[in-house]
Amino acid sequence: MKTNINYFKDLESFISQINNLNTEYLLLVATNTLIEIEKINTLNITGAIFPEIIYENKLYDSGLIAIEIKNNMKVHFYDDISKTYDFYKTFNSTKSIITLLDGISIYNESFLQNLFCNVNINTNIIGGGAGTINGKNKKVIFNNKGFYNNSAILLSLETSINIGVKHGWEYLTGPFVVTSSEKNILKQLDYKSAFNTYKNIIEKDCGIVLTKNNFQEISQNYPIGIVKYMGEQIVRDPISYENGNLVLVGEISNNSIINILKGDKQKLLDSAKEATTQALKEDCESIIIFECISRKEFLKDKFDEELNNIFSLLHNQKGIGAVTIGEVANSGNRYINFFNKTCVVGGICF
């Protein structure tokens, strides 16, 4: 059963096209789009705001993508992901789940782990973190009643999703053992200050002294890779430092083994094509793409080339997606992960 998926330049354009007030929609909204709850409070709508959205092979920092919800789909809204939910009753026979959640919430990984542990072993999960580049405390998940933080939307499907996950970041140095961490705060590597260890390595490689003013600009070129057995390293973005600690996007566990990574733009471009090829290994009518905002910032003008590479591999499939604050993916019985700086692509029949 095909569903209707369309781009609209603003909320008013979308509302003017609604023929049936009872029809349910999921919205992917670009950051420069005004969403007024009083205009949708009589409609059956949920949505999430992202730095940018992807429709076909173009990026939009304004407008929205509307996904019409059909009988083989169901939207589940969770207004507080710090709670523990009984996912088993809801999702034990679900084939796939698209997950949109508050990208900066400290509860993301516990929420995802609880979800993963309570779905069928063959359920595939894909998604991304909502958020805005400069809106640290902004509420970015919404329904027709209001905006929320520490919240999530799960779209369950009766069809499977083929998932491709690749990042393309390369080994610079390591390994190191995480000897002290707390949630997303990396405190010690090999019993030494995590920031001082990271700082010395980066300054030696790039020849630039790290400061508060240039940290984000420099660190986007040097992510941290959490080593996983028989799989992609899980990339973590260092976004700031305080008291000798590194602040990351996403949690990192004590006793993790990590490497410091470095980027080559061509390797990242190639990895996006590999992820797309993985997602297209079986027939699908659409693809959904979740690309990290810090990956886009690293690629700069090459990001359009990355999108073009992805869409060049399609055969009449529609492509939608979002630039995200972290990416979500699992594959069958492999453990779920919250990624940074990664290209996640899903081949899907809505």
Score class of each variant (00 low, 15 high):
residue 267 K to A: 13
residue 269 L to C: 06
residue 239 I to Q: 04
residue 246 L to T: 00
residue 258 I to L: 08
residue 248 L to H: 09
residue 247 V to M: 10
residue 264 D to R: 13
residue 239 I to R: 05
residue 246 L to Y: 09
residue 269 L to P: 02
residue 238 P to W: 00
residue 238 P to L: 03
residue 267 K to C: 12
residue 245 N to P: 09
residue 248 L to V: 02
residue 256 S to E: 05
residue 269 L to V: 10
residue 259 N to H: 14
residue 244 G to P: 00
residue 244 G to A: 07
residue 243 N to R: 12
residue 240 S to H: 08
residue 254 N to I: 12
residue 243 N to W: 02
residue 255 N to H: 14
residue 268 L to C: 13
residue 240 S to Q: 11
residue 252 I to C: 09
residue 259 N to A: 08
residue 254 N to C: 12
residue 262 K to H: 10
residue 252 I to M: 06
residue 247 V to K: 11
residue 261 L to A: 01
residue 265 K to Q: 15
residue 268 L to N: 13
residue 240 S to A: 12
residue 238 P to N: 10
residue 240 S to V: 08
residue 267 K to H: 13
residue 239 I to P: 00
residue 265 K to L: 13
residue 260 I to P: 07
residue 238 P to F: 03
residue 252 I to A: 05
residue 253 S to H: 06
residue 247 V to W: 05
residue 255 N to S: 15
residue 261 L to T: 04
residue 243 N to K: 14
residue 264 D to Q: 15
residue 249 V to H: 00
residue 268 L to E: 03
residue 264 D to C: 13
residue 260 I to L: 13
residue 238 P to G: 03
residue 245 N to A: 12
residue 252 I to G: 00
residue 262 K to A: 05
residue 243 N to I: 10
residue 242 E to Y: 12
residue 259 N to R: 11
residue 257 I to G: 01
residue 250 G to W: 06
residue 240 S to I: 07
residue 268 L to Y: 10
residue 246 L to A: 00
residue 242 E to G: 11
residue 242 E to R: 13
residue 268 L to I: 15
residue 263 G to D: 05
residue 250 G to Y: 02
residue 252 I to Q: 04
residue 260 I to G: 02
residue 264 D to V: 15
residue 261 L to Y: 07
residue 247 V to E: 02
residue 244 G to I: 04
residue 255 N to D: 14
residue 245 N to S: 12
residue 266 Q to L: 14
residue 269 L to Q: 10
residue 238 P to D: 06
residue 258 I to S: 05
residue 242 E to A: 12
residue 259 N to C: 10
residue 256 S to R: 07
residue 258 I to V: 15
residue 266 Q to P: 06
residue 263 G to Y: 06
residue 259 N to D: 15
residue 251 E to A: 04
residue 254 N to W: 08
residue 252 I to H: 07
residue 263 G to A: 11
residue 245 N to Q: 11
residue 258 I to F: 06
residue 260 I to S: 01
residue 246 L to Q: 09
residue 266 Q to R: 14
residue 245 N to F: 08
residue 258 I to A: 04
residue 247 V to I: 15
residue 258 I to D: 01
residue 267 K to Q: 13
residue 243 N to P: 10
residue 261 L to R: 03
residue 263 G to K: 06
